[in-house]
Write a protein that binds this DNA or RNA. Structure first.
Length: 877
DNA sequence: GCACTCACGC
DNA sequence: GACGTACGTGAGTGCG
């Protein structure tokens, strides 16, 4: 068998892993991202390359022989972050567990060890693979040595053979050092020749081959300036080349024979993985963390009951309701776990349904219930004809409020996070994929009892945590009451005009067919228009249209790209139209038809109340928060949403500029406050301020740009995002933003303060004390940190707006009852509420709805609500 | 089953 | 020099 040596640049890979992955923590608070990244990279390389010999080289001390040549070598480098330093001992342990030799050498860098051993190995007939994150190493590539450089992330690598080096830079591996000598390397502080970059260096090397030959024939260099620079920096160029040259004869005292790889010591490896909490890697090794859970389950006492009596009910209870499918509107109801001072009980839906005692207890406000996912419980009991009242604690919502980023909708992981006794995950209990099934009743009874017990186990500490965070009011006065309202909305559902939808389907199908034919004709062949891959080949290869943008996997064919190509080929407009109609057809018409309940012709969405990081709701199955409105063709979909009763209407009310009003309020910006108090057109006002013109001189283009800037402020987009939005350069977008801040100094000040606050506290809050933790705000990675800063600026704005409309929903529900109105709230779409109501209530709603919404919370600016109504959602515009 | 691209809303 | 950029949901393709 041929011999294959793998040489890994340990420091480089550790750095790469550290910066590529977010700062993961294990249970003990040790950072593990670099170790984790290192491990996955190592596993991938071992699997792909199957080396017979292996070594990981590390840099030794701070100084090397190169510092003698040039004292400033690697100068100006930031010192290794402590979060990374602390991980190196684990990396060493990891390598020991793998039985992979590691080596470092005083005065030399890892590069030199690798260079030396690779040369020896080549002579001995080895095939060599070098692994690093540093492109300098590509100088080692040869007929028998391949250099693998990590691209982005950690497992994505680029293989450098001499051919690939040639392809990429048009020079040989040997010339890499000449290239570095000329262009320098800022990361190693190698000076090179000032004014010479990659392009020039390559051009020169193609002509002269090496720095030596170049310097001998300087006369032949074209360009006076360049010639001078080279002349002046001759010595520096030679020195730079020397610095960039990897030594191939370092005094390495380890022989190739010692590098034989015999595979990992599984026991040791497991131990490390366990210590670091690498569950996914443990699982790969055939260790199932769930089986650990099962071993550690505490024994519990519970009873399966076939009749509910007073003996089973108390005033303080936890009730757990299980539905087999995610969609609790239709899924099989598995049963109930109940825990109170009298014991822990399991009963089936039939038992619950046939028990007048249970029905009474359920609807009694004074019988206190703690649950997990109140909305699910209420809807599920409703399906059994039961009312559920008196819910005073919801573990899911509490967990979400305490930290929205960690609220995966999984009972076991939430329980674990809050320190409960171990419990199996749903996936472990029910199985996943095709194997998912309901186990025998005794098992189910135990599992649901356990869940009920867990809720009661955690309730007290969660409430304490909420109080400590000053979030208890948010929990009990906002989110919990809201859950009841959302349950009501979901259960009510929205009526759909199926005939209308089917009519649209027919019409769009025939139009799609026509467009499809046209596209095939223009393309000269049939292909799958819905496949970006196939479409890319047609547009950019067959029709030779210019490539505007690429994605990871090929040509981008997104709408903004196609729009730029519109003038170049007739086919583009047809493709855009095909896309538009195709989206309507598949997502909105066919998608909606699929989820209509046959008995009632209604759709019952589910609002996820514990998901978004900002406090907004989301809507699924179907998503009724993204029904088309911008383009008329799509907007017509709304004609299919109708009131559930004859002679009723759809009534829609939306907040005008709620986010910007919130911004004015929390930033206390004089100008912005004034604008809203005077009820000015905010985009026009922004244009006047940013462009320094009078109202009459604001062009539609200025207003459009101002609107985009406002949009950017509200959504926290970057200069890049704004530039994409407006089709301008990033620099121009940045200038726009600066001019905005000049015009609204209060806003600027707020933005700066909130970033500081986030840095100091680790989180930001909304008007009603909702929190978002932003640990990335201290990241050393510019991009990650910038993103975190925009999050800090944006979340209080968007989140407070979410608070306000949630409060309005609660107030509204109360008012509807108080006024004895039949109107029903159906949907919430972030800044609007949609009702259905009898015609004769319209006049009342026209007054009541805006009044309630506008007074939901009192700000330093008025809130403004617009409304409209009509026979369908479409007409409520 | 999963990643990727694309597209819809706020 | 990094490297990917408001928040969501859903459909389709194409890989394994």
């Amino acid at each position: 068998m041929s011999k294959k040596l793998m040489l890994i640049d340990g420091n480089s890979i550790a750095y790469r892993a550290f910066f590529a992955l977010p700062l993961l923590n294990n249970e003990k608070g040790i950072h593990t991202n670099a170790v984790y990244g290192f491990t996955t990279m190592l596993q991938k390389m071992l699997q792909d390359e199957k080396p017979t010999h292996i070594l990981v080289a590390f840099d030794a001390g701070k100084t090397t022989f190169r510092h003698k040549t040039y004292g400033e070598y690697k100068g100006g480098r930031q010192k290794t972050p402590p979060e990374l330093s602390e991980q190196f001992p684990y990396i060493r342990e990891l390598l020991d567990a793998y039985s992979i030799p590691r080596y470092e050498l005083e005065n030399y860098e890892a590069d030199d060890i690798i260079g030396t051993l690779s040369l020896q190995a080549e002579k001995d007939g080895y095939e060599v693979t070098v692994v690093s994150g540093d492109k300098d190493l590509t100088q080692l590539s040869s007929k028998t040595t391949t250099v693998n450089i990590t691209r982005k992330g950690i497992t994505d690598i680029e293989e450098y053979t001499p051919e690939h080096v040639m392809e990429k830079w048009e020079i040989t591996p040997e010339q890499i050092i000449d290239m570095k000598g000329l262009m320098g390397d800022s990361s190693d502080n190698i000076p090179g020749v000032p004014g010479v970059g990659e392009k020039t260096a390559i051009k020169l090397l193609k002509q002269f081959e090496t720095i030596e030959k170049l310097m001998e024939s300087l006369d032949e260099v074209s360009g006076k300036k360049l010639k001078e620079k080279l002349e002046e920096n001759k010595d520096q160029a030679f020195m730079s080349k020397e610095l960039a040259t990897i030594l191939r004869e370092a005094p390495v005292e380890i022989s190739l024979d010692e590098l034989t790889f015999n595979g990992p010591q599984d026991d040791k490896l497991r131990e490390i993985f366990r210590e670091l909490g690498f569950n996914s890697l443990l699982e790969k090794m055939g260790e199932n963390p769930e089986s650990e859970v099962e071993k550690n389950l505490q024994e519990i006492k519970f009873d399966i009951i076939n009749e509910i009596t007073e003996e089973h009910l108390a005033t303080e209870n936890t009730l757990y309701v299980e539905v087999f499918e995610e969609n609790y509107h239709v899924g099989e109801i598995i049963g109930f776990g109940l825990h109170n001072e009298k014991g822990t009980f399991f009963f089936s839906p039939e038992v619950a349904q046939n028990s007048p005692i249970f029905a009474e207890w359920a609807k009694d406000e004074n019988q206190r219930k703690s649950v997990y996912d109140a909305k699910r419980c209420i809807v599920t009991l409703r399906r059994l004809g039961l009312d559920l009242k008196g819910i005073e604690f919801d573990l899911l919502i509490a967990s979400y409020i305490l930290n929205p980023s960690e609220s995966a909708d999984d009972f076991a992981s939430i329980a674990k996070r809050h320190g409960a006794s171990v419990i199996q995950s749903d996936e472990a209990f029910y199985g996943k994929g095709a194997k998912r099934k309901i186990p025998e009743t005794a098992m189910v009874a135990e599992y649901l009892s356990r869940k009920a017990l867990t809720i009661s186990e955690l309730e007290k500490s969660c409430i304490e945590d909420l109080k400590e965070n000053n979030q208890h009011e948010l929990f009990s006065e906002l989110e919990l009451p809201l859950a009841l309202i959302l349950a009501e909305m979901e259960f009510t559902g929205v009526k759909v005009d199926i005939k209308r939808l089917k009519g649209m389907k027919e019409e769009i199908a025939s139009r799609l067919e026509e467009i499809e034919k046209k596209i095939y004709k223009l393309a000269g062949e049939n292909f799958n228009i819905n496949s970006p891959k196939q479409l890319g080949v047609i547009l950019f290869e067959k029709l030779e249209l210019p490539v505007v943008k690429k994605t990871k996997t090929g040509y981008s064919t997104s709408a903004d790209v196609l729009e730029k190509l519109q003038s170049k080929h007739e086919i583009i407009e047809y493709i855009l139209h095909y896309r538009q109609l195709g989206k309507l057809q598949s997502t909105y018409i066919e998608g909606l038809l699929k989820v209509i309940h046959k008995d009632s012709n209604k759709v019952h969405t589910r609002f996820n109340q514990a998901l978004t990081q900002t406090g907004r709701l989301s809507s699924i199955d179907p998503n009724l928060q993204n029904i088309p409105i911008r383009l008329e063709e799509g907007r017509k979909i709304r004609q299919a949403f109708v009131p559930s009763k004859e002679d009723w209407v759809i009534f829609a009310a939306d907040y005008s500029q709620i986010e910007l009003r919130v911004l004015a309020h929390i930033a206390k910006d004089e100008k912005l406050l004034h604008a809203f108090k005077e009820n000015l057109d905010i985009h026009t006002k922004t244009a006047m301020d940013v462009f320094h013109v009078e109202e009459k001189d604001v062009t539609s283009n200025m207003r459009r740009q101002a609107k985009a800037v406002n949009f950017g402020i509200v959504y926290g987009i970057s200069d890049y995002g704004l530039s994409q939005n407006l089709g301008i350069t990033r620099k121009e977008a940045g200038e726009f933003i600066n001019r905005y801040f000049d015009s609204y100094p209060g806003v600027k000040e707020y933005m700066e303060e909130i970033v500081q606050e986030a840095k100091q506290k680790g989180y930001v809050t909304t008007l009603l004390q909702r929190r978002r933790y932003i640990p990335e705000i201290t990241s050393r990675n510019f991009n990650i940190r910038s993103f975190a800063e925009r999050t800090a600026m944006n979340t209080p704005i968007q989140g407070s707006a979410a608070d306000i409309i949630k409060k309005a929903m609660i107030d509204m529900a109360e008012e509807l009852v108080k006024e004895g109105i039949q109107a029903k709230l159906l949907l919430q779409v972030h800044d609007e509420l949609i009702f259905e109501a009898p015609k004769d209530e319209i006049e009342t709603l026209k007054k009541l709805v805006p009044k309630v919404m506008e007074n939901a919370l009192s700000l330093d600016v008025p809130l403004k609500v617009d409304f409209s109504y009509g026979p369908t959602w479409y007409d409520a515009k």
